[in-house]
Design a protein around this nucleic acid. Structure first.
Lengths: 345, 345
DNA sequence: CTGAAAGCGCTAACAT
DNA sequence: ATGTTAGCGCTTTCAG
């Protein structure tokens, strides 16, 4: 029935080495207060037997699992996969595992995942909440009673640290850049307006165009190529078509780019394009696409570092008193699609 | 010191419910052979206390961890992140966790990761070996004594099932397609020739051009944009520059595309381009890029399914007698860069 | 510096 | 239908 576990155990090592279990335990835990000779001998046996400690037993003794959960909408998304890569590296250097769970931005999957992770005793969680205002998620998380760090999107009303890029400032910078180029009718295209990040970016766009006395031209219905093409067609059909488009996320940027190409709209001559989020080919396409770049890997890394800092003390976890908000700066990468000449970056 | 664990335990539940521990154990395991009344009463206590079983203890008793390892070079790579997404979904539907570890194609990290995963008692592993011939990895894996499935690259000499796409046939199909277009000097660009996949693709390219009596023009030094540009410059400098380029992996395709654009080489008029591996923007750029498409998500899913099939029986794991090789078919996606007109795909 | 022994929370014989 | 009990492999007092 049960999997026959032929892996050697600590007491086997002890027997083979002719020492007590305590000594072996000390050896595998750094070898404090062990005679160097004994230490060497035990180590040799460990090597010979290929012994590795049974984590389950250690955990049972009340120790940390050395596993953290990473809860994001999708790991196929380049943004989150890059975060994951960085978080994984940080986890590894903290001798921990990274357990990836994807939620498809679905609240109930999110909560279920939290529960699963908790029953596996994850030491902590990195989570990108689908809904920054969800009370249910907040409850699930606080019941978890382990440190949690929010990634990319904060969880309002909770005291957990959040690591995000400054979406508002990024969108502001983008919009301002287009305005400085002399564009007067700057359209903003996006989808998924329920996401915190998108909302912030919309806010940045809106504030900036309004402050400049320019019209707000907003289409929040872009979810795929078809809707992008439709949206752009209807923009073009206006009496006064926009002279620039600001797209709020990388897939929207790609769809928009593709649609503009297909409709043979010269970029940036007829319509300039600037996208939020950099992506691999933004530099390779013609014209190359100007973007707001987020420090993706930093986000993942810092989130994990923060988590391990809270995990750091061996002491019992207690929630931080003040919520921290870490906003990383974004960067405008000037390329051709906004009207800047090809860049040297 | 140790994290104070105020989580209720099974015996607390038992005490509160006025029953023995066995009964509670039975209840949380489905409630077989328990009086419905008792069952309800115990369940009420469980709810009240917010009890969840301690996985570590269960695992220690010899049960499955319900966690599988996923060992790939990088999770930031779109190929592997898509595999991971699919594998994660499959894991979830098998009520298991996916533990992601990245190895940067580095053998010692790979072996260390296997050991870490084993000490955490992962039920099984999905692994993309950096070196298909590594004896050390094979040893580490066989010591693990859990089911392993190879992904994207087989591990030679072992009996584990491998799930890959048919790289040889894909490259053959690609090369043949270019030949059918009438190209006579087909260059092949790649890097990372130590990878199994690349080797197979090279083999497919070479065999096909040779069979057609065409010259083999192979540059295996492409690792980044700079080397791509250099490589292409030197191809162009030949007395007889190539009239088509076949790139063996998506990053190489992107670099090549970018370099050709920069050097103002008309595609496909002067040089046609066909790449192995589809990618997000291949369809969006102009000209759109013809590619060999691998069934990425299927690879991840099938690898995981295979693993769970082996895990399926509750019986002790014993290695499959015959190694299985599952080769998934690739698909030629005709777009503009090969000379086919824009596609309708 | 080292060892004996008591559990961590759970499951599974084996009783009853 | 339910309880008793002996560990799973490890860490950790507490004594040498």
């Amino acid at each position: 029935m049960r999997r026959k576990n032929n892996r050697p155990t600590l007491s086997e090592v002890a027997a083979r080495a002719g020492v007590g279990t305590t000594t072996v335990s000390r050896v595998i835990n750094g070898g404090d207060r062990v005679d160097p000779t004994t230490f060497a001998r035990v180590n040799k046996v460990i090597k010979a037997l290929g012994y590795t400690p049974n984590q389950a037993a250690r955990i049972l003794k009340g120790h940390r699992t050395r596993a953290i959960g990473f809860l994001v909408p999708s790991i196929a998304d380049p943004f989150f996969s890059s975060c994951a890569e960085a978080a994984q590296a940080t986890a590894r250097s903290n001798e921990s595992l990274l357990i990836v769970m994807t939620t498809q931005n679905n609240l109930s999957m999110e909560i279920e995942s939290v529960n699963v992770l908790m029953s596996h005793q994850a030491d902590g969680l990195i989570v990108a909440p689908s809904d920054s205002n969800s009370v249910d998620l907040r409850r699930a998380l606080s019941r978890a009673a382990v440190p949690v760090v929010a990634l990319d999107r904060p969880l309002c009303g909770s005291r957990m640290p959040s690591v995000l890029s400054d979406n508002f400032a990024g969108a502001e910078m983008a919009t301002r850049h287009l305005i400085e180029h002399g564009y007067r009718r700057i359209a903003c295209l996006t989808g998924e307006t329920n996401l915190y990040t998108i909302r912030e970016r919309m806010r940045g766009y809106r504030g900036t165009v309004e402050a400049a006395g320019l019209p707000v031209i907003l289409d929040t219905s872009i979810s795929d190529y078809v809707s992008a093409e439709t949206g752009i067609r209807s923009l073009l059909a206006r009496r006064q078509p926009p002279d620039a488009i600001f797209t709020l996320k990388n897939s929207t940027t790609m769809f928009t780019f593709e649609a503009l190409q297909k409709l043979r709209v010269p970029i940036p001559e007829s319509i300039a394009l600037l996208g939020y989020d950099d992506f691999e080919l933004a530099d390779a396409v013609r014209p190359s696409i100007t973007v707001i770049q987020q420090p993706v890997a930093d986000l993942g890394r810092i989130a994990a570092e923060l988590l391990f800092r809270e995990l750091g003390g061996d002491h019992e976890y207690k929630p931080t008193t003040r919520p921290q908000l870490i906003q990383l700066e974004t960067r405008l990468v000037r390329r051709a699609s906004c009207g800047c000449s090809a860049t040297t970056t």
